[in-house]
């Protein structure tokens, strides 16, 4: 599904290049659950952003679903977001002014899904995540774990084939974190959704089936688990 070759990312300041990523080459197959690990400032988030096409690499090649996306037109990228990629954030990033229901509905509106289809999908998601009762609440009326559930529901609404999660449990207590990771594993196993997450915690990484260790912008280790 994902092929990256010799990805490099650096920021030039005063003629000096500050490398964030160097020669990252890897491939991720459909249905994998990959955890990117490493100390702070290692370049994990940058790599995830590049994979999510939120940032462009300075050098290297990136193929997504057999298509070269190293440089991508705005329009193409929006198409990918609408149909193939779902994002989950550490700070949830729900829209404060909208209810739970409306938050989940937003990507479907952009995808131009019909009214009845939209309703049934949202109802389905609310049901699955046990948040039906909360659908008319606003994000700041929910606990962190519930907000992240909504965040994941929103990411799933468009039925993506890939979920990119940046420290999805970083703001959560351990019990809630476990619930979220369990959910990820279920999604990966039962629905075959490819998941790439960035995490600090070894424990979270164990939920996946592959771990990429990164340090100083270089992939140090690539291990299969489970």
């Amino acid at each position: 599904m994902i092929e990256i070759k010799n990805i490099e990312k650096y920021y030039a300041s005063k003629g000096v290049k500050h490398y964030v990523l160097r020669h990252v080459t890897t491939s991720i197959k459909k249905g994998e659950f990959v955890s990117i690990m490493g100390p702070s400032g290692a370049g994990k988030s940058t790599l995830l952003n590049i994979l999510g096409m939120l940032e462009e690499s300075t050098y290297g090649q990136y193929e997504f679903m057999g298509e070269d996306v190293t440089t991508l037109s705005e329009r193409k990228r929006i198409e990918l977001y609408r149909n193939h990629i779902g994002f989950v954030f550490q700070a949830y990033h729900l829209i404060d002014e909208m209810t739970v229901y409306e938050n989940i509905e937003a990507p479907l509106l952009y995808k131009k899904i019909g009214n009845s289809e939209r309703k049934s999908r949202i109802a389905d998601l609310l049901d699955r995540f046990n948040i039906v009762a909360k659908k008319d609440l606003f994000p700041n009326q929910l606990s962190g774990g519930q907000q992240q559930l909504v965040g994941i529901a929103r990411a799933l609404a468009a039925q993506p084939s890939l979920i990119l999660a940046d420290e999805p449990t970083g703001n959560l207590q351990s019990v809630q974190a476990e619930e979220i990771m369990e959910l990820f594993r279920k999604l990966n196993k039962e629905e075959g959704i490819t998941i790439i997450q960035v995490t600090h915690a070894e424990k979270n990484a164990q939920y996946g089936n592959r771990i990429l260790h990164i340090a100083d912008g270089v992939v140090k280790d690539d291990v299969q688990v489970g």
């Binding site: 999510g52 939120l54 705005e74 929006i78 977001y81 609408r82 990033h93 404060d96 990507p107 952009y110």
Partner: peptide, 16 residues
């Protein structure tokens, strides 16, 4: 700003 960024990631185009 934040809302706009979120919406973009959810697939909103600039025009939207």
């Amino acid at each position: 700003t934040k809302e706009i960024a979120v919406r973009k990631v959810l697939g909103a185009s600039n025009v939207q």
